[in-house]
Design a binder for these strands. Structure first.
Length: 800
RNA sequence: GCCGAGGUGGUGAAAUUGGUAGACGCGCCGGACUCAAAAUCCGGUGACCCUUGGGUCGUGUGGGUUCGAUUCCCACCCUCGGUACCA
C-alpha cells in the first residue's frame, strides 16, 4: 500500500498536465464549449492570498466537473496589470512599474500553477503590455467614432491622495474607493464614455441575466431610473429658463418656491446685487463642506434667497428662487420646484424660512391644512381645473399641458452618469488623442496605435503636483498633428484601469491576435458561460463590461447583448471579522498550508468550510478533517477489491452520484464533500469495495482533489487523465429503497418511528402504528379527530 | 433613514413543495491498540428531567396561521452588505 505523498503527487501531475497540454481546449472547435472565467487579478507584490484561492479553486472544481461532463472547457488566466499600486510602489522605492509588474506576474503564475487549476496559459493576458493596450486604445477610438467618447468640462471627483480624478462609481460615501481619502470636487475638462446612452438597455436586460438578485438590484439602483416630468420656469427679468425634473407634476400648484444647487450655472447671473454677498458666502461655504457632511440627510436645512423670482407656469405666480445644498448639482438639472406640502425636505425648508405652503394633494380630496406634509399619491385639491383628479391622472394632464405650451412634458431621468475615464496617472493606457491648436481634438489614426507609454519617467517629480506625469515627458507629449502636421500635444492622461478590464474577456479566446482586439473567428467562444468573482464589482466592472459589450455590438463587432450570462459571487474570507488586507496585517497565506497538507486538501477545505457565496471568518481548525478524509479515501481505494455489490452498496453509490452532481451544478461544494465523506465512511466500515464503485468514487472526488484523483486513477491502471473520463451517471433504479422509515406523530409531536414497506397503504400503516406501545399509550381513550399521512415521510394522529 | 442578505449545538455548518431540526466536519468525553504517547479505529455528544422505555424545552425575541413552522404571515431586536437630501 502506498502512502499519500502529496508533495510528489502534486508536482508530478502539474508537470503531466503541462507537458500533455491537458488544459488547452481546441479553440477551433467551439461546439459544446464552456467558457469558465474568474475575474482576473491585480499582480500585487504580496503572495497569492486566501482570497485568490477562494475565488479560483472552487471555480476550478466547477470547471473540472464541467469537463468531465463532456464540455470543451476553456479557463484562461491573466493580469489586470495597470494601476496605482505599482505606480505608488515605484514612487516609494524607485522601481519601475513595468519591472515590478513583470516580477509579480511571474511569481503569481508559479503560485497559480501550484494550485493545480485547469488554466490555459496559452492565452494569458497582461493589460499593461503594448500588444494589449493597443486595443484598449482602439476601443477608445472606436467609441469616439461612434460618438460614445467625448470630452467635457464638469465638476469631477478628485482624490488628493491618488492625485487623480475618479468616476462616480469609484467614490463611496465621499471617499476614494481605493485609498479612502476624502474626495473633493474640481472643475476639469475630462474624457467620458457615454454609458448613459445605454441606461435603459442596461436596466431592462438585467431581467434576463442569471445573476445574483442582489447584484441586479444594485445595478438597478445605480442606474436609478425615475419616471417624471421636465418643467421650464422662466425667470422674471432674465432670459434664463430654469429647467427642473420632478416626479410629481401633479403637485405643481403647490410649487411656492424654487431651489438651485449652489453650483447651478445660473446662480451668478440671476442673483440680485443686494443678495450677492450672502449668496457668494453660501456658495463658498458649501465648497468647503466634504461630500459626507453635505449629503448626510438628517442635517438641518440651510440656504439663501437669490433675490430673483420665477414664474410658476400653471399659476402664473411669482415664486422666489433660493439656493440650498439640499439640491445636488449632479442629479437631474440641479434645480427643483419646491412643493412644501408634498415633499418632506421642501416642507422642512419652507418651515425654517417661512415660505408659503399650499396643500395640493390629500388622501380624500378634502382640505386638511398645512401642519404636516402629505407626500403620498391622492386626490388633487387647490389646483383649479385639476381638482378632484387622482395624482396619476393629474400628472398626465399637467404633462400634456406643459408639452402643448412647449415648456416641458413627460421625462425619464437616470441617476447613472457618464463614465469618467481620464486619470492623471502614469501607469495606464495613454489616451490616443492629440490636441492641436488649429484642428482641436484629433484622434490618433488607427495605424499609429499603440501610443506607447514611455519607460523613462520620473514619477517622484510629478507626484502630488496635480499634473499627469506624462505632461512632463517632452518626447511623449510633443507630437505632430495627424491632420495638419503642425506641432501639437498629446493627451497627457491615461485611461481608468476599468477600461482595460471592460473588454479583456473578449480577447482571451485568442489573446495574441494581431489584427484586432479579438479574433472574429473565435467569437463563437463568447459570451462567458460562467463568470465568478467578487460582489464588490457590482456597479463598477460588471456595469462597464456590459456597456462595452453593447457598444461593440452596435459597432458591428459582436453579435450578443450580454458578456456574462451566468454570474456567481464567491463570499469574502475575513479574519476576526475584518476584511483581510496587507495594511491591517491580518492576511492569511495559503503557502504554509500547501506546504503542510497540499493544494488538494487546502482547496477542498476552503470549499468545505461553508457555502461558496458566503465566505466566512478564517480558521484552520477543521482542515484536519479534510486531511483525514483524503487519507481514508486513499486507503479505501487500495483495499482488496470485492467482486460482489450489495443493493445497499449500489444505493450508496448512486445516491452519492446524484447529490454530488446536483450540488456541483449549483456550486454547493460544502454539501457535495459531505456526501463524499458519508460514502467513504460507509465503505470504510464495510472494509471492502468493488472496482466499479471505487472507480466511480474517485471520479466524483476528482474535481475537488485533482492531483490525488489522477494518481489513484493511474494506480487503477488507467492510461489517460481522469479528466478525460466521463462523469458517473446516476441510475435511479438503485436509489429506490423498498423499506423506509416513517415518523409517527401524535398531535404533531414525534412519538416514534417505524421501518416499513415503501408502498404500504395509509390504512395498513395506521393500523400497525396504533398497535405500537408508545403510540397506544397516547391515543387510548382519546377521540381521533384526523389522521394525516405524508407518503414516505410521516403519519400524524390528531386526538382530542 | 431607505434597500438587500442573514441570526440554528461548544464550534464551521446541514435540512425537497411547511413533514423525524442539528446531516457532514471540528472540538470534547469514553473505549480499543500501545510500556507510554502520537496516529488510527470504535462508541457517545443540543439543554434539562428521569432508573431503563421515555418525557419537557429547543432554530434571535414576541405574537399569528396550521394536524404540524428553521421554512408562511405580522411586529420588534441584532449582525453584515449596498445606498445616501436622487426631487
Amino acid at each position: 500500500m502506498t502512502n499519500y505523498d502529496f508533495k510528489a503527487i502534486e508536482k508530478k501531475w502539474q508537470h503531466y498536465w503541462n507537458v500533455n497540454r491537458c488544459h488547452e481546449p481546441d479553440m477551433a472547435q467551439s461546439e459544446n464549449k464552456f467558457y469558465n472565467l474568474t475575474m482576473f487579478s491585480y499582480p500585487s507584490g504580496d503572495r497569492l492570498h486566501v482570497g485568490h484561492w477562494y475565488n479560483f479553486a472552487p471555480a476550478d472544481t466547477f470547471a473540472r466537473f464541467k469537463k468531465m461532463c463532456g464540455y470543451n472547457v476553456f479557463q484562461p488566466q491573466g493580469f489586470d496589470a495597470f494601476g496605482l499600486p505599482a505606480e505608488n510602489y515605484a514612487i516609494k522605492h524607485g522601481i519601475h512599474p513595468a519591472i515590478s509588474t513583470r516580477q509579480n506576474i511571474s511569481r503569481m503564475k508559479e503560485q497559480l500553477i501550484e494550485m493545480g487549476a485547469m488554466f490555459d496559459w496559452r492565452n494569458e493576458i497582461n493589460t499593461s503590455s503594448p500588444e494589449y493596450y493597443k486595443w484598449t486604445q482602439w476601443l477608445f477610438l472606436k467609441l469616439m467614432e461612434m460618438g460614445l467618447a467625448y470630452q467635457k468640462k464638469s465638476p469631477v471627483n478628485w482624490c488628493p491622495s491618488c492625485s487623480t480624478v475618479l468616476a462616480n462609481e469609484q467614490v463611496n460615501n465621499g471617499e476614494c474607493d481605493r485609498c479612502h481619502s476624502q474626495v473633493t470636487k474640481r472643475l476639469l475638462k475630462q474624457w467620458f464614455f457615454k454609458i448613459t446612452e445605454y441606461a435603459e438597455e442596461l436596466l431592462t436586460c438585467l431581467d434576463s441575466l442569471n445573476w445574483p438578485e442582489k447584484t441586479k438590484h444594485m445595478q438597478r439602483n445605480w442606474i436609478g431610473k425615475s419616471i417624471g416630468s421636465s418643467i421650464q420656469f422662466s425667470v422674471v427679468g432674465h432670459s434664463e429658463v430654469i429647467e427642473v425634473f420632478t416626479t410629481r407634476s401633479d403637485t405643481i400648484f403647490g410649487a411656492t418656491y424654487m431651489v438651485l444647487a449652489p453650483e447651478h450655472p445660473f446662480v451668478n447671473s440671476i442673483t440680485t446685487t443686494n443678495c450677492l454677498s450672502k449668496v457668494t458666502e453660501y456658495v463658498e461655504s458649501t465648497k468647503k463642506l466634504s461630500e459626507i457632511d453635505r449629503t448626510s440627510s438628517d442635517r438641518d436645512k440651510s440656504g439663501v434667497f437669490t433675490g430673483a423670482y420665477a414664474i410658476n407656469p400653471l399659476t402664473q405666480q411669482e415664486i422666489p428662487i433660493w439656493i440650498s445644498d439640499y439640491v445636488v448639482a449632479s442629479y437631474g438639472t440641479g434645480a427643483i420646484m419646491a412643493v412644501p406640502s408634498g415633499d418632506e425636505r421642501d416642507f422642512q425648508f419652507a418651515t425654517k424660512f417661512n415660505l408659503p405652503i399650499i396643500e395640493v394633494v390629500s388622501a380624500d380630496g378634502e382640505i386638511h391644512g398645512n401642519d404636516q406634509c402629505f407626500s403620498d399619491y391622492g386626490i388633487v385639491i387647490n389646483s383649479e381645473k385639476y381638482n378632484g383628479m387622482t395624482s396619476e391622472a393629474a400628472k398626465i394632464s399637467v404633462d400634456d399641458f406643459l408639452e402643448s405650451k412647449g415648456i416641458g412634458g413627460a421625462k425619464v431621468q437616470y441617476k447613472l452618469h457618464d463614465w469618467l475615464i481620464s486619470r492623471q496617472r502614469y501607469w495606464g493606457a495613454p489616451i490616443p488623442i492629440i490636441h492641436c491648436d488649429d484642428c482641436g481634438i484629433v484622434p490618433v489614426p488607427f495605424d499609429q496605435i499603440p501610443v506607447l507609454l514611455p519607460d523613462d519617467i520620473n514619477l517622484a517629480k510629478t507626484y502630488g503636483q496635480d499634473i499627469s506625469p506624462l505632461a512632463t515627458h517632452d518626447n511623449f507629449i510633443n507630437a505632430n498633428c495627424p491632420v495638419c502636421n503642425k506641432p501639437a500635444k498629446r493627451d497627457a492622461d491615461t485611461m481608468d484601469t476599468f477600461v482595460c478590464s471592460s473588454w479583456y474577456y473578449l480577447r482571451y479566446p485568442d489573446s495574441h491576435f494581431d489584427d484586432g482586439p479579438f479574433n472574429p473567428d473565435k467569437t463563437a467562444w463568447l459570451p462567458i458561460d460562467q463568470y465568478i468573482g467578487g460582489a464588490e464589482h457590482a456597479t463598477m466592472h460588471l456595469l462597464y463590461a456590459r456597456f462595452i459589450t453593447k457598444a461593440l455590438r452596435d459597432g458591428g463587432y459582436l453579435n450578443f447583448d450580454e458578456p456574462f450570462s451566468n454570474l456567481f459571487h464567491q463570499g469574502t474570507i475575513t479574519r476576526d471579522g475584518a476584511k483581510m488586507s496587507k495594511s491591517k496585517g491580518n492576511t492569511v497565506s495559503p503557502d504554509t498550508y500547501i506546504e503542510k497538507c497540499g493544494a488538494d486538501v487546502f482547496r477542498s477545505y476552503l470549499m468545505f468550510m461553508g457555502p461558496f457565496d458566503e465566505g466566512g471568518d478564517w480558521t484552520d481548525t477543521g482542515i484536519v478533517g479534510i486531511e483525514r478524509f483524503i487519507q481514508k479515501s486513499w486507503k479505501l481505494c487500495q483495499k482488496e477489491l470485492n467482486s460482489s455489490e450489495s443493493a445497499k452498496d449500489l444505493y450508496i453509490l448512486h445516491t452519492t452520484i446524484k447529490s454530488v452532481t446536483s450540488d456541483l451544478e449549483s456550486k454547493k461544494f460544502n454539501t457535495a464533500l459531505s456526501r463524499l465523506m458519508e460514502f467513504v465512511n460507509y465503505f470504510v466500515a464495510k472494509n471492502t469495495i468493488s472496482k466499479n464503485i471505487r472507480d466511480q468514487f474517485v471520479q466524483l472526488l476528482a474535481p475537488f482533489m485533482p492531483h490525488a484523483a489522477e494518481e489513484l486513477w493511474e494506480m487503477f491502471g488507467n492510461k489517460n487523465s481522469i479528466f478525460n473520463s466521463n462523469w458517473p451517471k446516476c441510475n435511479e433504479q438503485f436509489t429506490i429503497e423498498s423499506m423506509i422509515e416513517i415518523a409517527i406523530q401524535v398531535n404533531g409531536k414525534l412519538r416514534g418511528s417505524i421501518e416499513i414497506d415503501k408502498n404500504i397503504s395509509k390504512e395498513a400503516l395506521l393500523q400497525r402504528v396504533k398497535e405500537l406501545e408508545n403510540i397506544h399509550k397516547f391515543i387510548s381513550g382519546k377521540e381521533i379527530v384526523k389522521e394525516i399521512f405524508v407518503p414516505g415521510r410521516l403519519v400524524n394522529i390528531v386526538i382530542k
